[in-house]
Nucleic acid binder design. Structure first.
Length: 440
RNA sequence: UCCCCGAUAGCUCAAUGGUAGAGCAUCUGACUGUUAAUCAGAGGGUUCGUGGUUCGAAUCCACGUCGGGGAGCCA
C-alpha cells in the first residue's frame, strides 16, 4: 500500500468532513489519559490529530501512545473544523501506522544554544522558524530567476573551479588541478558572465561563491550564493534602475506569498512594504560628509577621511537616514575592483554603487559599469599587480566588438536575512560554512 | 589576524575557596480538550583538557582545545 498522503496538510480545509490519510512526522505529543493529541507535520503545515481511546481499536491507541517527537507515521482520520485546534482544523483519528520511530530526538521545544543547534543543523531545519526561513530563501531564489527570465535574461552559469583570483585581493580556497597546477574556488562569476553578455545581451549567473577570508561576523559565510546579472549597453544609472526594480519585486513577492512565514518569524513587515523603487542615491563624497557630521550619533562610529571605505557602523549611520534601501555610488577607484569604469568627469572615482539594506543589514548588492576599453583594462590589471596573461580572454572581450556594459552581484543570504529579519546570516542557508564550522 | 566573553546532567543554566543543584528532556504512574499541559515519583555528573596555588578548587593562576560576540575584509 502506498504511503503517499491523500492530501497535504496545507490543503486540509478542502477536505473538511472527509476521511483522509496524512503522512509526516510527529512535531509534538500531549497525552491526557484516554485522549492523545498528536501534532503532525508534513512539510507543508501542521495539524492537530486527536486520538480518543473509545473511538479506536486498542492497538491503534497503543501505537499512538508509543509515538515520540519526530517519529514518522501515517495517520488516517476525519477532517473537522474545531476552534480549539491551533490551525482551525483537526483530524479525528481512526488509524495510526508507524513508519519510523525516533528515539531521544535531541531538539526539544525548549530553548537551545547556538553551538548545539548548529551541531544539529541537519535536524534543526525541521523546526518551525528554520522551516519558515528556508521557505523564504526558496521564494527569493525562485523570484529572482523568474523576474530576470521575464525581462529577457538568459541564465549563463559560470565555472566554480577557476585559474585565478577575479578580484585579486581576497583570499581564495585552492585545490590541486591535475597537472595544471592550482585551481581556486570562484569568488565571483562576473568575469565569465561578461562573456555571456556579449553573446546574449542580458545574462545572469547564479551559484555558490567562496571567500577564504577569516571574517567572523553575523554577515559573513565562507560559502554563499550570489546572483549576478550583466547587461550589454547599460550604463551606471541604468544599472541602478535595474537593481531597484529587481529588489523591490523580490520583496513584494515574499510579502505576497510568504506572509505566514514572515508571521512565524515575527517579522514586522511595515519596513518591507516601503521597499518600492526608486531608492535614494547618495554619493560616496556625501556619505563621507554625512558620517563626519553625524558619527557621534552611532555607537562605535568614527570620523573618516576621503579615500577610506565605510565600516559597518558607517553603513548603519547612512542607512538610518532613509526608509528604504539606499545606493552609495561613485567610490574612489583605489578601493574598488580593477574592472570598474572610471567616471569621465572625475577619473578618481568609479561608476559603481553598493546597495545598502535598511535596518542595519548592510550591503546586499555591489555593482558597477565595467571598463569596456581594452587598453585601459589592461593598464588597470597591471596597476593591480595582476598577471595580464591570466586575463587575456577577459581583455579579448573588449577587442572584438566591445560595448559599454554594467552588472551587479546580489548576495542571497544577506537578502534573505534582511527580508526575514534574521539576526545572523548563518540561519538563511541550510548548511552554513563558517570560519569555525564545516560540520554537518 | 586582533579585542572581549564563555565551557557544570541529554538541553538551558545556578552553585560568593568548604557535601554537585534547579527547570526542561527521559523513564514510571494519574488524567477525555492539550496548545512549551498539569500533578506525583525515579534514574542521570571525568564540572572541556593538562599542569600549578591551597588543608581543601566547578570556583584562583598558566597553557591548550572548542565555541560565542565584535573589528578588519566583503555580498
Amino acid at each position: 500500500m502506498s504511503l503517499l498522503p491523500t492530501t497535504s496538510i496545507a490543503e486540509i480545509a478542502k477536505h473538511d468532513g472527509q476521511t483522509v490519510s496524512l503522512s509526516g512526522w510527529i512535531y509534538h505529543k500531549t497525552e491526557k489519559g484516554k485522549l492523545i493529541f498528536l501534532m503532525l507535520r508534513d512539510g507543508s503545515a501542521t495539524i492537530q490529530c486527536v486520538v480518543f481511546k473509545k473511538n479506536v481499536a486498542e492497538e491503534v491507541f497503543a501505537r499512538a501512545q508509543q509515538l515520540t517527537q519526530e517519529s514518522s507515521c501515517r495517520i488516517t482520520g476525519a477532517v473537522r473544523a474545531d476552534a480549539r485546534a491551533p490551525s482551525g482544523y483537526e483530524l479525528d483519528v481512526q488509524d495510526v501506522e508507524i513508519i519510523g520511530m525516533a528515539h531521544d530526538y535531541p531538539i526539544s521545544p525548549k530553548e537551545h544554544g547556538v553551538e548545539f543547534l548548529m551541531e544539529h543543523r541537519h535536524l534543526w531545519v525541521r523546526s518551525a522558524k528554520q522551516h519558515a526561513l528556508l521557505r523564504i530563501r526558496a521564494e527569493v531564489i525562485a523570484t529572482a530567476q523568474e523576474w530576470l527570465n521575464a525581462q529577457g535574461f538568459i541564465r549563463y552559469d559560470s565555472p566554480i573551479l577557476t585559474m585565478t583570483a577575479a578580484e585579486g585581493s581576497s583570499n581564495l580556497f585552492g585545490t590541486d588541478y591535475f597537472d595544471l597546477g592550482r585551481a581556486y574556488l570562484a569568488q565571483t562569476g562576473q568575469l565569465y558572465v561578461e562573456s555571456g553578455m556579449m553573446s546574449f545581451g542580458k545574462v545572469y549567473c547564479f551559484g555558490p561563491t567562496f571567500r577564504a577570508e577569516k571574517s567572523k561576523t553575523r554577515r559573513h559565510l565562507t560559502e554563499f550564493w550570489m546572483i549576478e546579472p550583466e547587461v550589454a549597453f547599460a550604463d551606471h544609472a541604468e544599472n541602478m534602475v535595474l537593481q531597484e526594480n529587481f529588489v523591490s519585486a523580490i520583496v513584494l513577492r515574499v510579502l505576497e506569498r510568504r506572509g505566514a512565514d514572515l508571521k512565524t518569524l515575527e517579522r514586522d513587515t511595515t519596513p518591507l512594504e516601503r521597499v518600492l523603487a526608486p531608492f535614494p542615491r547618495i554619493s560616496y563624497d556625501d556619505g563621507v560628509a554625512l558620517v563626519n557630521a553625524k558619527y557621534a550619533e552611532v555607537e562605535g562610529c568614527t570620523p573618516m577621511v576621503w579615500g577610506e571605505d565605510f565600516g559597518a557602523p558607517h553603513e548603519t549611520l547612512i542607512t538610518q537616514q532613509f526608509d528604504r534601501p539606499v545606493f552609495v555610488e561613485r567610490y574612489p577607484s583605489a578601493i574598488k575592483a580593477f574592472y570598474m569604469q572610471p567616471d569621465p568627469q572625475r577619473p578618481e572615482v568609479a561608476l559603481c554603487a553598493d546597495l545598502l539594506a535598511s535596518e542595519g543589514y548592510g550591503e546586499i548588492i555591489g555593482g558597477s559599469q565595467r571598463i569596456h576599453d581594452a587598453d585601459l583594462l589592461e593598464a588597470r590589471i597591471r596597476e593591480h599587480g595582476l598577471n595580464v596573461d591570466d586575463y587575456r580572454w577577459y581583455i579579448d572581450l573588449r577587442r572584438y566588438g566591445t560595448v559599454p556594459h554594467s552588472g551587479f552581484g546580489m548576495g542571497i543570504e544577506r537578502v534573505v536575512a534582511w527580508i526575514s529579519g534574521t539576526h545572523h546570516i548563518r540561519e538563511t542557508i541550510p548548511f552554513p560554512r563558517q570560519l569555525y564550522r564545516i560540520y554537518p
